[in-house]
Design a binder for these strands. Structure first.
Length: 575
DNA sequence: GCCGTTTTCGGCCCGACTGTTTTCAGTCG
């Protein structure tokens, strides 16, 4: 059995090899499309396969369905094995090198008869590339530089790192003379949990001045390209940023273009064409008479297409265009809708502030309810609480509640450890005495799927557990989550009525958008919490909200948006 | 290879930038 990631990787490999082979470009695109589609699918493709419904997956037709079938049945794919014999698989390692695409890879491979990254580097150093047709000394140097940068570059950047950086870049660019506006775009504006590079859009009538400032930013390692309206740079740490500059009257079309996603933009352009318009980052061009329509705002762009404005978090071609056409876009949750923080830590375990300080900080940020979910006893490194400690904590909560008055309601809760043996860290009789129970995995994350699933299902089915905290345990970018059968986990959650968390910490964002959307589809309540260990952690809530927005969540889907009454009733009913 | 409120065949988004060229191919997003 193969999971969606493995299938997507397989089709991406086919796409890359086909492209080097020189196969019809639309075939290549079809494989890439199928790979993307599999990655944004809420359920495992293997489920569709069992039901004989593979072709219901967008981008999967007869040919790709057959290939998935063969992979599911035999674990291998004859088509891919043959392809690998035609095109050496080592060549795909060349493709991430900037300026080296499939055509040149094929040219170098066939003329010089080399297939590995090491051989490519050697050939470039020996000056063997500059004499190939269409290439010269500059291309050769660019390839060498590109190989060197592969080591420097991390893969994708966590949103939590990229977001503040992009804000900072925009602030610097706004100081440049003539700049009217500077906004982050790309996957960062769509708030993906990781981003490939930073995309910045600037409105100005003096693009040259902005370009000058951009390429001279601190820590710039090299300039990858510089034109009249577009430039890109690489920083010392390998991170890349690109900049577009457009005059204010074109800012709307330019922002839509720069925000993407690519697939979303393709859809918009198709709609434009069906209305006799050609859409680019500059304008709508009337096909009939070549006259132009300019849009200073995104709203005007979508309006011209007969659509309501679509929030950036939805722009992934996952049904948002159809929903917009039918006027059925979700009324997405907003930061201000969140009234309760149901996972926080205090000095009772590994938090930095006392409960009183944390509660006041949360109240200051508009929270009406805060739950202290200090760690349970077995998580020793965090100073986990014994049941005896909990009695003292309960007394302390009664005390601070008096001081806090009705500014914020404090819940006595726990983040109880789902231990490696599958049991919870406290007995049921004790859990029953708490206001709220979050159960989480922190240890034994590398256990085999069967074992880890047995643990998680045990926690989900425990009637005292209200929320499953950061369900996969992943840490961005260093640690993959546990080997969870997501569909089985969500089905169990649906049965037990437990809420699934979207942990707002940018190193977690767990659940991520795709499984969270599937949870909503199944009617499972979601809970967006900061997991704050300090006051500043409380300000990370918007990352969780953004992930929820990417999952199409509305206030009714998220227990943190409910009125205090409704939340307390829900908790009581679960006892 | 996928897909269809014109289509089951014939399309499939659009432009910027670079390096190598004398008008364009390759790459990228």
């Amino acid at each position: 059995m193969m999971n969606n990631k493995q299938l997507a990787d397989t089709f991406t490999l086919i796409a890359n090899l086909s492209e080097i082979k020189g196969e019809n470009i639309y075939k290549t695109l079809a494989y890439r499309k199928a790979a993307d589609s599999l990655m944004s699918l809420g359920r495992e493709a293997s489920e569709y396969w069992k039901e004989g419904k593979l072709k219901e997956i967008p981008g999967v037709g007869a040919a790709i369905a057959e290939k998935i079938d063969e992979l599911e049945r035999t674990g291998r794919l004859e088509f891919l094995e043959r392809l690998k014999k035609e095109v050496p698989v080592g060549l795909v390692e060349w493709l991430p090198i900037p300026g080296l695409g499939p055509k040149r890879a094929a040219l170098i491979w066939k003329t010089l008869n080399i297939t590995s990254l090491a051989e490519l580097e050697a050939a470039a150093k020996e000056g063997k590339l500059r004499n190939l047709p269409g290439m010269g000394a500059k291309s050769e140097a660019a390839i060498l530089e590109g190989i060197a940068s592969l080591g420097r570059r991390s893969t994708r950047l966590p949103l939590g790192k990229a977001y503040p950086l992009a804000q900072e870049l925009c602030e610097q660019l706004k100081k440049v003379k003539g700049v009217v506006d500077a906004q982050p775009a790309g996957s960062l504006r769509r708030m993906r949990s990781t981003v490939g590079d930073l995309d910045i859009l600037v409105a100005s009538r003096d693009p040259a001045a902005v370009m000058d400032a951009f390429v001279k930013l601190p820590r710039v390692h090299r300039v990858l390209g510089r034109g009249d309206t577009k430039s890109s740079i690489e920083f010392n740490d390998g991170m890349r940023a690109q900049l577009w500059v457009h005059p204010p009257e074109k800012f709307g079309t330019a922002l839509v273009y720069a925000t993407g996603s690519k697939d979303h933009n393709v859809r918009l352009r198709e709609i434009a064409l069906s209305r006799g318009l050609s859409l680019s980052e500059h304008s709508f061009l009337k096909v009939k008479d070549d006259s132009e329509i300019f849009c200073a705002t995104e709203e005007e762009v979508y309006k011209t297409l007969g659509l309501p404005w679509i929030p950036p978090e939805l722009r992934e071609d996952r049904g948002e265009i159809q929903a917009a056409k039918a006027n059925k876009l979700p009324r997405l949750i907003q930061l201000k809708n969140i009234k309760a923080d149901l996972q926080t830590h205090s000095t009772w375990s590994d938090g930095k502030l006392s409960m009183l300080e944390m509660a006041r900080a949360a109240a200051k940020r508009g929270m009406k309810v805060i739950a202290f979910t200090d760690h349970s006893v077995s998580l020793g490194v965090t100073g986990g609480l014994s049941m005896e400690d909990h009695k003292k904590q309960a007394a302390e909560i009664r005390k601070i509640q008096k001081q806090l008055g009705d500014s914020i309601l404090v819940l006595h809760a726990t983040e109880v450890e789902i231990k490696a043996d599958g049991t919870l860290d406290y007995p049921d009789e004790f859990l029953a005495t708490l206001d709220l129970v979050v159960a989480s995995l922190h240890t034994g994350l590398r256990q085999p799927r069967e074992k880890v699933m047995q643990r998680v299902l045990n926690a989900i089915r425990n009637p005292h557990v209200d929320i499953i905290g950061h369900p996969t345990g992943r840490l961005i970018p260093d640690r993959e989550g546990a080997d969870i059968d997501m569909e089985a986990m969500l089905q169990a959650a649906k049965e037990s009525g437990v809420a699934m968390e979207i942990n707002a910490h940018p190193a977690r964002l767990d659940l991520d958008d795709v499984p969270a959307r599937r949870a909503k589809e199944l009617g499972i309540p979601l809970s967006i919490n900061t997991d704050a260990h300090s006051e500043s952690d409380l300000d990370l809530l918007f990352y969780g909200v953004a992930t929820g927005r990417r999952a199409w969540l509305e206030p009714k889907d998220v227990i943190n948006c409910w009125s205090t009454d409704k939340l307390l009733k829900w908790l009581k009913k679960r006892k």
